[in-house]
Write a protein that binds this DNA or RNA. Structure first.
Length: 328
DNA sequence: GTCATTTGACCAGT
DNA sequence: ACTGGTCAAATGAC
């Protein structure tokens, strides 16, 4: 049974934090440039520069997520040793069959994963999200009518994909399915186009970077609206169905960006509330990156959490988002 | 035979 | 001590 020294993990973590910092510096600089650019009059080569800077910032975010995902994977791959209590255990179940747990059964010999990147959604039906899932457990939950079902990515073993999800019926009439996604798909399925969910699906609860664009017309100008409206503008510039729920991460990936620059001019002049929203959107995103960077920079211990969900939106009173509680 | 699901057990975290 | 997340043998479906 393999054990891993704490010292080794600390070194790994430090290395990851350093790379995360580097990437965030790049992203922050790009967004700072973008912010300056947005304050200039439109025209000329501004449009192309906007796209390039946006791509640059997004690439850095992608890289950060990638680093963090691989860090998660390393930790999760370490299944710490089996306890001595099961070493010689032999059980005789009711059926009479003898169950030898002495050498094969290593149930429970695992390290519970630190949850990062949780996204929750409520749907009327069990949605096919396009990924291959394999059920690995079911649990009766206290004070809940229905059991919770546990799924992992089918490619956990062949590709080391660490994505998991939990599905539970939370209401009976009408039945509502609460699905909590944890971790990112690192399997090849990740490369497929994101599934556009049916319009009949109601996203009541979003978290992390899962966005609901349907309520983007809120009247007061808020930070939330600035960010959401900015993204909506990008969507309308790209050929992506605007009502669809997409992750901001996916949305902002370069493949969804338009070949032509998003028309921020028309976006900014589309209404009083959007003027401010458009004007602040660039710096908004830059602030987020700066926030992550400064958090990394002030990390005082190796246990510093790098939960990007928290960093991205924690403290932002977004009406469109409902964030997950930290899972225990 | 292969792969997915079911289910009881184990144990980490609180 | 209790809850809930994960494991893996048993079982089922194809």
């Amino acid at each position: 049974m393999e054990y891993c020294s704490l010292q080794a993990w600390s070194e790994t973590d430090r290395s990851s934090v350093g790379r995360v910092k580097d990437e965030l510096i790049v992203g922050r600089d790009a967004m700072t440039e973008l912010q300056v650019l947005l304050q200039k009059p439109t025209g000329g080569e501004r449009g192309l520069a906007e796209v390039e800077l946006t791509k640059k910032a997004l690439l850095s975010i992608d890289n950060v997520l990638s680093i963090l995902s691989s860090s998660d994977r390393k930790v999760c791959d370490v299944q710490v040793g089996s306890p001595s209590s099961v070493d010689q255990k032999i059980e005789v179940p009711a059926g009479g069959k003898k169950k030898n747990l002495a050498s094969k059964d290593r149930r429970g010999g695992y390290k519970r994963r630190k949850v990062a990147h949780t996204r929750t959604k409520l749907t009327a039906t069990q949605v096919d999200d396009g990924f291959a899932w394999r059920k690995y457990g079911q649990k009766e939950i206290l004070n809940a009518k229905h059991p919770r079902n546990y799924f992992r990515c089918t490619h956990k073993h062949d590709q080391g994909c660490q994505a998991i999800k939990q599905v539970q019926i939370t209401e009976d009439d009408p039945p509502m399915y609460r699905t909590i996604y944890m971790g990112h798909h690192t399997c090849r399925d990740t490369l497929r186009a994101p599934q556009l969910v049916s319009e009949s699906d109601s996203y009541i609860d979003d978290s992390s970077y899962l966005l609901n664009f349907q309520s983007n017309d809120a009247s007061p100008t808020t930070r939330k609206q600035g960010y959401g409206a900015f993204i909506t503008s990008l969507i309308s510039s790209a050929s992506v169905k605007p009502e669809s729920d997409l992750t901001a991460h996916n949305l902002l990936r370069s493949e969804y960006l338009p070949v032509q620059s998003p028309d921020l001019t028309s976006f900014e002049s589309s209404g009083p509330s959007n003027v401010l929203a458009g004007a602040t959107s660039g710096s908004e995103y830059g602030d987020v990156i700066s926030s992550v960077y400064s958090s990394c920079n002030t990390a005082s211990s190796d246990e510093q959490s790098l939960n990007m969900d928290e960093y991205f939106f924690d403290g932002h009173d977004f009406d469109d988002f409902q964030f997950d509680e930290e899972l225990h």
